[in-house]
Design a binder for these strands. Sequence first.
DNA 1: GGCTCGACTTGATCCAGGTCAATCAGGCAG
DNA 2: CTGCCTGATTGACCTGGATCAAGTCGAGCC
Lengths: 254, 254
Amino acid sequence: MADESTVLDLSQLRRSCSSCALSDLCLPAGIGGDDLEKLDMAIRDKRMLDRGGALYRDGDPFHALYVVRSGSLKTFVQDDTGAMQILGFHLPGDIVGFDALATDRHVSQAEALERSSICELPYDRLQQVTSEVPALHRQLMRVVSREVVEEHRHTVVMGRQQAQEQLAIFLKSLSDRYQRLQRDGSMLTLSMSRYDIANYLGLVVETVSRLFSRLEEMGVLEVNRKAVTIRRPDLLAELCRSSSTSPSRQRDNG
Amino acid sequence: MADESTVLDLSQLRRSCSSCALSDLCLPAGIGGDDLEKLDMAIRDKRMLDRGGALYRDGDPFHALYVVRSGSLKTFVQDDTGAMQILGFHLPGDIVGFDALATDRHVSQAEALERSSICELPYDRLQQVTSEVPALHRQLMRVVSREVVEEHRHTVVMGRQQAQEQLAIFLKSLSDRYQRLQRDGSMLTLSMSRYDIANYLGLVVETVSRLFSRLEEMGVLEVNRKAVTIRRPDLLAELCRSSSTSPSRQRDNG
DNA sequence: GGCTCGACTTGATCCAGGTCAATCAGGCAG
DNA sequence: CTGCCTGATTGACCTGGATCAAGTCGAGCC
């Protein structure tokens, strides 16, 4: 697919939503030309994060939302004993930081899974623009609603009883997100570790590792460390629906 | 605690946030007197729902957010096979319906767990007020952020390996919410069924039933059908933290 | 009262996935 | 190159919770 932008482009892209390939998927979606310029004004220079670099930590004061421009992030919470629960993986176009709006402090953490470029949206500037551009308010609510819906999806996956089904859904969903980004949905590059995947799904690493092997044996996947090729998308989709006889998930019985 | 309001009060409360005991916990929090009146204008007459009554269904067009005034709701999604996953239980002051903002259609369902009274906030009116009252925009974002944080909490609980810990956290959190509502946090009335609790936690009903019995044997709870008394809050809190050596939840290991 | 029905509890059994442990494959410093 | 370290895989085993199967309890209804 499209390689890194040339060096010349980079400087131009620095603060321009209109020239960004992600604009349809990102905050500017549905925002018109003039208003888009105003939005551009609210965006601070991009930030680069190396693998493992923290975008924000639990307890940090809230001052901005962040858009993944390239690379990927994970968000997670850690309890007092240091036990971690991964909340999500974030690809280009995803916006993170909404957790802090309620209390003006972040109550989760965001960390780069690989070298990543991030657009920073200082919230005070964003609010300024929002008051001038009503459409942006609506769009902001839409985006945070998307976040809520995404959390619901995660909940549904974790509620599943069959680990294989969980992993299948995880891979399928990643594949779908790749396609929305115009990438080849059958060639995944898992920037997160097996530990991260296991944690995200509520499993242990060994189980995830075994499942990758099993799916490879079944001919569904070809697994080579972080490079996963989906050989049989049809089978994968099938596995997402299989064993839907999962317990306690019968019809609504108020 | 406080019984039903008298008949006389009811008519007055009908559309007045300022006289509502929940106003601190609800949308009006932090909104000043004059602005509060404007907000009141945006609130349609309350709706009553009987047990099992639907507030909205999957696919319904979005036109309002809803606040629980009394009673309780559950929200859930159902897949094509009818399998249900409960997303949350909602007590007075909670706002539901944010799932629909992204797509202008509800992608989950809300149903009353008992006879409940609901404030309806038509979104077009709300947007009207929002444009006049900047503080409301901020407050709306705050509230939806609270929703995101609440989903995170749910994710963390589901990620736990020990079922007993999950149930303990569930009960503790319910107790905390009772206290925020000025109710006795040690006397819970579980308006949801055991099936609902099991589903919410990703367990089966038998396991939940056994856990209630076990916690009763341990002297932590006194269980009488839907009435649950927390006899030893200290022990309950302990159980929420115990077995924190849960797998795949070790320290962050990029 | 006696009947039915649905929510809940309890017991017996089984197995998916967690636990423990050994091994392997890359990446990197020296 | 060697040694080390971390991530990933694989095997052997064991247990917590799912499954299956009987009850029990209370509410509603005739």
